[in-house]
Design a protein around this nucleic acid. Structure first.
Length: 494
DNA sequence: AAAAAAT
């Protein structure tokens, strides 16, 4: 698929960038990159849309680097020429790291082209110092960008290329005022590029109001699903009290690599992470109640394979790119169809296979129906499933002897009581018909054939196993918030 | 109604 696309070199990308990408094994373009490059180099405003994990960062990153590094009329001076705005701090780190990697052989005078990340939750001084030393490309989150602008440490009056990554999120109500403030300080003659997998029509209209005749580029036809055809999607009805037990069994699936579990609230994310740790899983958490150091530490441990389960709020739903994520579990259903698309887009990236499992509680059913309908998933009323359901084991390739606990049970100091064992009391092992979809269309083939197909290309993370063995299985540190007894009990029932 | 994002 991608091998049929032209190489970066063939499209006229300068040798320094080609060489850097090539060292990362990136020779050929993805569709969105091929389509974007000529227009972006011409200076056109763009709205770029491609499915999750299909190369959007380099679709704006390569032309951005090429453009500012070859502009003889406005050579780089160390004053920022390109600004990339992103919705989360972790995505800020990832994007700036990707741009720095692609630009590592580019030079400005006798120094290297500089990509600086500007985001909250960290000390000011290193960021201010990095700006002072000369920043050609700035990647940042809105709050800290504005902060440093107001303090006079960041000059964005010379920006000629502006990118909004996850643009629909950046233009959503929570971010819009900040984005407008940033736009006011950037020259009107700038080039603007907006990218996301999801671009609701009202957002496109809003975007056009501050862009200059943008071209809307879609790497896929507008009719095609926003979700990868390589990701198998399952939905089950599950009682809240049974979800941790259910998840711990799903985590023992034979075909499972790294797994991301999404919740709707920070508190539930922490609770699930704590309970899975007690059950012996190598798990970390990322959500807004953790300090930035803890967030980055957990994500790094997940990237390196030191832990293979990450529980997160939607802070990690967008953009985060981790190679070997084979399973995404929606522990609580997402807010809307965009969030669903982005969450499950953490797996099945770049043509790999993935499994997405959504657990639908009774009181989530109405909202799930809306998401199911909007995306045409085809299972508005998922069959009820218990953690010990034999059919579940078969469908998700879980060994028969899988239980709710692995290894020696961890008993962190936060544990006040043994893990709940609700499954045995509540389960009635009875199976009902359930549907599955692949790429939005119901799949009707024989289950065994289906599974064989899914397993034909096993998603393995063996390439990272070796380097992770050394560090042992120390789970990422996490804390539990103190709550009065009554509140804690209510939360446990939640 | 929640999460994110400045302190």
């Amino acid at each position: 698929m991608t091998a049929l696309n032209p190489t970066f070199a063939k499209l006229g990308v300068r040798d320094e960038i080609v060489r850097a990408l090539s060292e990362d094994g990136k020779e050929h373009t993805f569709a969105i990159q091929e389509l974007t490059l000529p227009l972006a180099l011409k200076g056109d405003d763009l709205i770029g849309q491609a499915r999750t994990g299909m190369g959007k960062t380099l679709a704006f990153g390569v032309p951005l680097l090429q453009k500012i590094s070859t502009d003889t009329e406005r050579p780089l001076t160390g004053a920022p020429r390109a600004l990339v705005v992103v919705p989360t701090r972790e995505l800020c780190l990832q994007v700036s790291s990707d741009l720095a990697a692609a630009g590592k052989y580019l030079t400005v005078g006798d120094r290297k082209l500089s990509v600086v990340s500007i985001y909250g939750g960290r000390a000011y001084e290193p960021q201010i110092e990095a700006l002072r030393a000369g920043a050609d490309v700035v990647v940042g989150t809105p709050g800290r960008l504005l902060d440093l602008t107001q303090q006079g440490h960041l000059q964005i009056g010379g920006i000629s290329v502006l990118v909004l990554d996850e643009a629909d999120e950046m233009l959503d109500l929570g971010f819009l005022p900040d984005i407008e403030r940033i736009l006011r300080q950037i020259p009107e003659t700038r080039q603007s590029m907006l990218f996301s997998a999801t671009m609701p029509d009202p957002i496109i209209t809003l975007a056009r109001s501050f862009m200059n005749q943008p071209t809307h580029i879609r790497a896929e036809s507008p009719q095609s699903s926003a979700v990868h055809t390589t990701t198998d999607q399952f939905a089950y009805r599950a009682h809240a009290l049974d979800k941790v037990e259910l998840v711990s069994r799903v985590l023992q699936a034979r075909n499972r690599g790294a797994t991301m579990i999404f919740t709707r609230t920070k508190r539930t994310a922490q609770k699930v992470a704590d309970e899975l740790a007690e059950r012996g899983f190598k798990v970390g958490a990322v959500h807004g109640d953790l300090n930035q150091g803890a967030r980055e530490k957990a994500l790094k441990a997940f990237r390196t394979g030191e832990i293979d389960v990450l529980v997160a709020t939607d802070v990690a739903a967008r953009g985060i790119d981790i190679d070997d994520v084979t399973h995404v579990i929606n522990y609580q259903i997402p807010e809307d169809e965009q969030a669903y698309v982005h969450r499950i887009g953490r797996t099945g990236r770049a043509g790999k296979t993935g499994v997405a499992i959504t657990l639908v509680d009774w009181d989530e059913l109405a909202r799930w129906e809306l998401i199911d309908k909007a995306l045409g998933l085809g299972h508005p009323d998922p069959a009820e499933t218990y953690s010990s359901s034999p059919h579940l084991y078969e469908e998700l390739d879980i060994p028969k002897d899988a239980t709710g606990t692995v290894g020696p049970a961890k008993t962190p100091k936060t544990a006040k009581r043994p893990p709940r064992d609700s499954a045995e009391k509540q389960s009635r092992p009875r199976t009902r018909s359930r549907r599955r979809t692949r790429g939005g269309k119901p799949v009707t083939g024989h289950p065994d054939t289906e599974k064989a197909a899914a397993n034909g290309k096993p998603a393995t993370n063996s390439d990272t196993d070796a380097e992770t063995a050394a560090d042992g299985d120390k789970p990422a540190r996490r804390r539990r918030r103190r709550r009065p007894r009554k509140a804690a009990a209510a939360a446990a029932a939640n």
